[in-house]
Nucleic acid binder design. Sequence first.
DNA 1: CTCAGTGCAAACTATTTGCAGATTT
DNA 2: AAATCTGCAAATAGTTTGCACTGAG
Lengths: 135, 135
Amino acid sequence: MSNNNDIRSAGLKVTHARKRILEVLETGNESHLSADDINRILIKNNDEVGVATVYRVLNQFVDAGICIKHNFDSGQAVFELTPDHHHDHMVCMKTGNVIEFEDEVIEKRQEELAKKNGYRIVDHSLVLFVEPIED
Amino acid sequence: MSNNNDIRSAGLKVTHARKRILEVLETGNESHLSADDINRILIKNNDEVGVATVYRVLNQFVDAGICIKHNFDSGQAVFELTPDHHHDHMVCMKTGNVIEFEDEVIEKRQEELAKKNGYRIVDHSLVLFVEPIED
DNA sequence: CTCAGTGCAAACTATTTGCAGATTT
DNA sequence: AAATCTGCAAATAGTTTGCACTGAG
C-alpha cells in the first residue's frame, strides 16, 4: 500500500482512478507511457476512467513529484514514475525502444556550462535518437 | 541571392512566401522562432502568407535541411536555420532566453554511450532548463 | 456532510490537409 | 501551358476545462 501513501502524502484523495493509474505506471513493462497508452490499458483492464481524468491525474502526479513528463519528440508526451536516480534516454528510431542511461561526465559538464553562463540548472533533457549499428 | 539558391536547390520553386519566410529566419534577432512568431512578423511586415503556408514551408525547409525544428518544451515547436556547426541549448525559465552552446566532451561521451549499447546516433537533443543564479 | 474528484462533452492550441484559384518555370 | 504553390476554411491530434454528479474522509 505504499502507492496509497504516495498519493495521500501529495495531499490527494486516494481514489479509484488515481490508484489504477499509479498501478499502470508501476506495473507496465514499458515504463514510458503516453496518456493515451494509459487510457488504453485501463480500458483493457475494465478500469476506464476517461482521458480527461488520466490527463488530470498525471498532471497532479507530476506536480506531486510522483512522476515526470517527457516531450521526447513527436506528438504525445510520455510519463514515467520519478526514478530513484536521474537518467537520460536513447530512443531507437527503428523500434521505438527507449533505453535509459546515466553518465556522470555529462552531468557534471552540464553543471559547469550552466554556471559559466551565470545559470543554475533547474532541469534538463537529453535524448539521443539512435539506430542499430547494423543497417 | 544565396537564399533563392537554397530554395531552388531543394527542388522548391522560389515563391514570395518562401523568400519572405527564409528572410525572417535569416534576419531576426531571435533565432529560434515558432511558426506563429514567423506569421506575426510577416503580418507586421505586410507580407502575410497565412499560417498554413508558414507551417508548410517550414516543414519543407526542414526536409530540405534548410532549417531544423526543436521541441523544446511547452506547446510550440521552434525553428532555426541549420547552424554551421551543431550546438545545444539552454533555455532560461525566467526570461525565455535561449542560449546556444557546444561542448566537445559531451558530444564525444554521447557517441561512446550509444556505441556501447549497439547504436549509432542519428540525432540528439540536449536542452538545459535553467534559472539565473541570483534568485 | 463537505469538499475534492470524476467523466462527459465542449473548448482550446498547435498543426495538417482539401481544394479552387494564383504563381512559377 | 504545366506543374507547383497558396490561402482559406475545415479537419485533426493532443490536451484542458466547465459543470453537474459522485465518492472519499
